[in-house]
Simulated scan of single mutants.
Amino acid sequence: MATKLQEREGFAALVMRLRAGGVTNLDLLSAVEATPRSLFTPSHLSPYAYSGRSVPIECGAFMESADLAIRLIDILKVKPGQRVLEVGTGSGYTAAIMGRIAERVLTVERYRTLADLARRRLSELSLQRVVVRQADGREGMSGEGTFDRILYTVAVPEIPRARVEQLVSNGVIMAPLIREGARPLMVRMTRIGSRFERQDLFEVPYIAAERGLSKAL
């Protein structure tokens, strides 16, 4: 893990980039400041924790750049009192940030190793409002009720119907949609009664979701 000085310098540089990009939500920036990103980064890569690049982690996965992670949460508009579902825990960093704002965050991950590591990191930060579960993110989450916000950090051909049915009215779901010959496109869908308003955002580097749980990792 990086030193406190490295954390402060990395955070300061990140905030400057975020504000230049229009991210000014003080609750969000305070959550970022309170969550040392190097805790979620492999120790030998901690110098890149706050960089604008993706960082490889366990199980052949990666954590998106700090800039992208925070930008997505800002667009998702996570607020106090909300219930949030994240599909694709990865390092646990995005769930940790959202868990400092929302009432409850359920994050699901198909790799047992990633889920266990995320739980350990979140426990170290005493983030009790975040629940990590090893589960198939492509399937429905029975018994969990509805969510105000849903965020996918794995790419899918289309937003699963099971997820749509778990979104409250005026709720928002964001997911990277797979496109032939191009990187996935992050899409924001807002539920208004029985219909949805779609907003196409930008390309993202997420990999395609796999079905089922990982049995080896």
Rank of each mutant, 00 (worst) to 15 (best):
55 V>L: 10
25 N>K: 06
20 A>E: 12
69 A>F: 01
27 D>T: 04
27 D>E: 14
73 I>D: 09
63 M>Y: 02
49 A>G: 11
32 V>C: 12
47 P>Q: 03
53 R>C: 10
43 S>E: 15
6 Q>I: 04
14 L>G: 01
49 A>C: 11
26 L>R: 10
68 L>K: 09
20 A>M: 07
52 G>N: 12
71 R>G: 08
50 Y>K: 02
70 I>H: 05
6 Q>F: 06
52 G>L: 09
51 S>N: 06
44 H>A: 14
22 G>S: 09
48 Y>K: 15
43 S>V: 13
16 M>H: 08
62 F>K: 05
28 L>H: 01
43 S>Y: 11
21 G>W: 02
14 L>Y: 01
27 D>K: 10
50 Y>W: 11
42 P>L: 09
15 V>S: 00
21 G>P: 00
27 D>S: 14
9 E>M: 12
44 H>N: 14
32 V>T: 03
68 L>T: 09
59 C>N: 10
36 P>H: 05
55 V>H: 04
74 D>F: 14
18 L>P: 02
15 V>C: 00
74 D>H: 15
51 S>F: 10
57 I>Q: 07
22 G>D: 09
64 E>Y: 02
13 A>H: 04
47 P>S: 08
71 R>H: 13
55 V>R: 03
45 L>I: 07
59 C>Y: 01
8 R>K: 14
6 Q>W: 06
32 V>Q: 01
16 M>I: 13
73 I>W: 09
27 D>P: 05
72 L>G: 00
66 A>N: 03
53 R>G: 06
39 L>D: 06
57 I>K: 07
34 A>F: 04
7 E>H: 14
46 S>C: 11
61 A>K: 12
48 Y>H: 15
50 Y>A: 03
14 L>A: 02
50 Y>S: 02
64 E>A: 13
72 L>M: 15
22 G>V: 06
31 A>Q: 08
67 D>I: 15
64 E>Q: 10
54 S>F: 04
10 G>Y: 01
23 V>P: 01
49 A>W: 07
12 A>G: 00
43 S>P: 10
24 T>E: 11
50 Y>P: 01
73 I>E: 12
42 P>A: 09
22 G>R: 10
59 C>T: 12
